[in-house]
Computed example of a mutant assay.
Amino acid sequence: MDGMLNIKKWAVIYPIYINSKKTVAQGRRISVAKACENPTCIEIGDCCNYLKLPFAIELDKAYPRDFMQRGRVRVLLKREDGSLCNPAIGTKKQLMLQIAELVPKHHGRTKKQESVSTSDAGPSKSRKGGKKKK
């Protein structure tokens, strides 16, 4: 089988690995400071594309520790001959850190975050108000 098609040997990245909302016990693999909020497989795939890495999104797969988390991304870090696809990324850890850095800048996110930040302010104020009354 050709190396490009045998994705069984590719590195697996679950969105949980770089999700700042998860704990290490739940499966986060990088520090909260470097992780990003609720990344999706599509965003991770787009980041791999941006990093010029071959990838495959497997939406039918689930994270073993949390089977409600559907989807994972397979990424080819090294070619058959052992050479790196992207010289800047040699390990899975480096890849996760790179992706986590890129996801917040994702074109699908930049639009969403503006509306989220304004709607977030509403409930938090009312919660603070509730605490004062008690």
Rank of each mutant, 00 (worst) to 15 (best):
I57P: 01
V12S: 05
G45A: 12
R65N: 14
C47K: 06
M96R: 13
A56S: 14
L51E: 10
I18R: 01
P64C: 09
L53I: 09
I7L: 07
L97I: 13
V12Y: 04
T40L: 10
P104E: 02
A56W: 03
T91M: 10
Y14V: 05
G45N: 01
N19Y: 03
P123Q: 04
L76F: 08
A62K: 12
R72Y: 09
M4C: 06
R79F: 15
R29N: 07
H107D: 02
K22V: 02
C36E: 13
L5H: 15
L97G: 05
S115N: 10
K61M: 10
C48P: 02
A62Q: 12
Y17S: 00
A62E: 15
K112W: 08
Y14N: 10
G71R: 03
Q69F: 14
T23C: 01
V32L: 01
I13E: 02
M68P: 00
G82E: 02
I18T: 07
V116T: 14
V116H: 04
E101M: 07
V73C: 08
H106C: 02
A100D: 05
K112S: 01
R70H: 15
K61H: 09
N49H: 13
S119K: 11
C36Y: 09
G71Y: 02
R70Q: 11
S117G: 07
N38K: 08
M4L: 11
C36G: 02
G45E: 01
R28N: 04
S117I: 12
D120W: 09
I30M: 08
Y14C: 02
G108Q: 10
S119D: 14
R72I: 01
K21Q: 15
A35E: 06
C85W: 09
K92M: 01
G27R: 06
V73S: 00
L5S: 13
A100M: 02
R72N: 10
P15T: 05
A121P: 06
M4R: 13
N38Y: 14
D66L: 07
A33H: 05
I99L: 10
Q26P: 04
V24C: 05
Y63P: 07
Q69T: 09
Q69H: 15
A11S: 13
K52G: 13
E43R: 03
K105G: 09
C85H: 06
I99D: 04
D66V: 05
N38G: 03
E58V: 05
K112A: 08
Q26I: 01
T23Y: 08
L51Y: 12
N49A: 11
K9D: 10
R65M: 15
R109V: 00
D46W: 01
Y63N: 10
V73E: 00
E43L: 05
D66S: 14
Q98T: 03
E114L: 10
Y14R: 06
V75C: 04
S115V: 12
G122R: 09
Q98H: 13
P87F: 12
A11T: 12
K78W: 15
